[in-house]
Design a protein around this nucleic acid. Sequence first.
DNA 1: TATGGGGTCTCCCCCCACTGGAAGGTCAAG
DNA 2: CTTGACCTTCCAGTGGGGGGAGACCCCATA
Lengths: 128, 128
Amino acid sequence: MNIGDVSARCGLPAKTIRYYEDIGFIKPLRDSNGYRVFRPVELHKLAFLGRARALGFTIEDCRALLALWEDKGRASADVKRISNGHLAMIDTKIADLQEMRATLSNLVEACAGDDRPDCPILKQLSSN
Amino acid sequence: MNIGDVSARCGLPAKTIRYYEDIGFIKPLRDSNGYRVFRPVELHKLAFLGRARALGFTIEDCRALLALWEDKGRASADVKRISNGHLAMIDTKIADLQEMRATLSNLVEACAGDDRPDCPILKQLSSN
DNA sequence: TATGGGGTCTCCCCCCACTGGAAGGTCAAG
DNA sequence: CTTGACCTTCCAGTGGGGGGAGACCCCATA
């Protein structure tokens, strides 16, 4: 299978697939013309990576998850630990965004949004 | 005022202040020794930028907000439009993160997290 | 006067996770 | 034989700075 087929099947851009090879996630064979040749194992790994990335796992998390996935004697505790760590990161980000949202939302509601220059948003941003 | 004093007062690292000069947010004077000399106007701008960045506005949003802040004849509608746009971005990000969180949370709860290799998280990530 | 410590300068590379584009080789259809 | 789609490598850029090198500069103390 060539990179275009793999891209269509796993939903990752060809650029990303080449990048994943660069950083050691996959090691596709090469045809005599230099083209990458993907076997089912690479396709599965790429699909795995696509799903893990869609859940927001970092590349380094993905590296660890991929290693656990390939290790048939893994402990599920290790997977759960990584996932809980990521869940905590997500919660932190959500909390930060919600705080921003609350502040900004109040300011927006207080702003007339008309032709006049008076603006509580700018006033708050320039408050000493 | 030197960059260290400004940094302490507005809470931005010196590196960030130099970067903000680079991208044209401020134009501090220079002393005969080459040191940047900050006047109150630059201090105010930097504080403004610090607060806007803390609310998650992008650098380009900040550029527009700063221009409106300096324009005494601005319409508050312009400020509100930018802020509403940013609010929409925040809402999108929150929604994305909450969706990730929901999926991942379900998986984590289903995972025993013990010594055994069986793991619903990996199973889901490798599902066809 | 020497010296030591801290502040500041510019410059360049690094981070994450790709993405875009240039320049060129390859393959299959018409 | 040509055309166009596909593939290759390599270089540069994104956003928003951070780290650190090497060189000045300023002030206080001995």
